[in-house]
Amino acid sequence: MSGKFIVVEGLEGAGKSSVIALIETLVNAKGHKTITTREPGGTPMAEAIRECVKQNWQETVVEETELMLMYAARAQLLANVIKPALANDTWVIGDRHDLSSQAYQGGGRGISQTTLTTLRDLTLKGFSPDLTLYLDVEPATGLARARGRGELDRIELSGLAFFERTRARYQALAEQDDSIVTISAMQAMPDVHQQVKEVVEQFLQ
C-alpha cells in the first residue's frame, strides 16, 4: 500500500475535527491525495451501525453488543474505504480507529483484553495506522466542550467515571506504542495545532 493512514484519537471535546482538517491541509500541501473517515461510520452500512450505537435505546445496551457493533462498522470501513484508498496512493485521515475500542470498551466498559484482541485479530488481521495522534483532555473539560456543541449521545452520557477510565487506558496504551504521539488538548487550540503541525511535518519527511 502506497498511501498512509493517520488517525486522530481522543475523548469528546478534545478538538479532533479541527486537527483532522489541519492534517489534511498539511498532507495535501505535499501533493498527496487525501480522504477523511470517521468511526463508527464511513460507509452506508457503517453509518447505520453508528446510529444504532449512539441512539438512546429504551433497553439496556449490553457492553458486548456495543463492542461488536463497533468492530462490525470498522470492518466495513476498512474493507470498503480505507484499504482501497491506501492501495490507490491516497492518504487516509481517520477520526478514530481501533484505539478507541481499546480505550472506550476496554478501559471505560471494562471488557477483557482477551475479548478485544480476539475481535481485533478477526476484523483487522494485523492492520494498524502508520501514525496516531492522541489528543489528551481532562474528561470534565472535554464533556463541557461537548455539551456546548449540543445534546449528548448515549456514549457521551456514560458519566465522568467512565471517561476517566477511558482516558487512563488511552494514556497507558499511548505510552506503550511508539506510533502514538500524545498532544495535550488542554492547551489553547493554536498551541495544539502548532504541535500537530510539527509532528505531521516530521512524519511527512
Rank of each mutant, 00 (worst) to 15 (best):
S112G: 09
T117R: 02
P139W: 04
V196N: 02
F127M: 00
L173I: 02
L78I: 09
Q187E: 13
D191V: 13
Q171E: 12
G31K: 03
I183V: 11
H193V: 09
I180D: 08
K54M: 15
R120F: 00
I180F: 04
G41S: 09
T34S: 05
E39V: 05
D177K: 03
P40M: 00
P139E: 01
Q105R: 08
G10R: 06
I82V: 15
Q202S: 05
E164S: 10
T60C: 08
N80G: 10
G31I: 00
G13H: 13
E24R: 12
L124V: 00
Q55L: 12
Q202C: 02
A144F: 12
A144S: 12
L157S: 11
I180Q: 06
V137Y: 01
S158E: 13
E64T: 15
A188I: 13
V196W: 05
Q55R: 15
I20N: 08
V196G: 10
G94C: 00
P129K: 05
V200P: 05
F162S: 07
Q55W: 09
M70D: 11
V199C: 06
A140P: 04
K30E: 14
V62S: 13
K197L: 06
E164A: 09
E39G: 06
T90V: 11
I155K: 08
R50W: 10
E151T: 15
D153Y: 13
F162A: 07
T90S: 08
S100N: 04
D191A: 14
I155P: 12
C52T: 15
G159T: 11
G10C: 08
D178N: 10
S179K: 02
E12N: 11
G142H: 09
L11F: 07
D136Q: 14
L119D: 04
S112R: 03
N28T: 10
G159I: 07
R38K: 15
R74G: 02
T115I: 09
A161G: 07
L122E: 05
T25E: 14
F162H: 14
K125R: 06
M186R: 10
L143Y: 13
G126N: 00
Q171N: 03
E63A: 14
G108H: 01
E64P: 01
W57D: 10
Q102L: 00
S17N: 11
A146C: 10
R74T: 05
Y104V: 06
F127K: 01
T132A: 02
F203M: 00
G107C: 06
N80I: 04
L116T: 01
L133F: 09
N56K: 14
L131E: 11
G13A: 11
V7N: 01
A14H: 09
T114D: 09
N56Y: 12
A21F: 07
L119K: 00
T43N: 09
V53T: 13
G110E: 02
L124M: 06
M189V: 15
Q105H: 10
V196I: 05
A21C: 05
A79W: 04
A29R: 02
H97Y: 04
G41L: 03
I180V: 15
V192Q: 03
M189P: 14
E151G: 13
A72N: 02
V27F: 08
V53M: 03
A73P: 07
G41R: 04
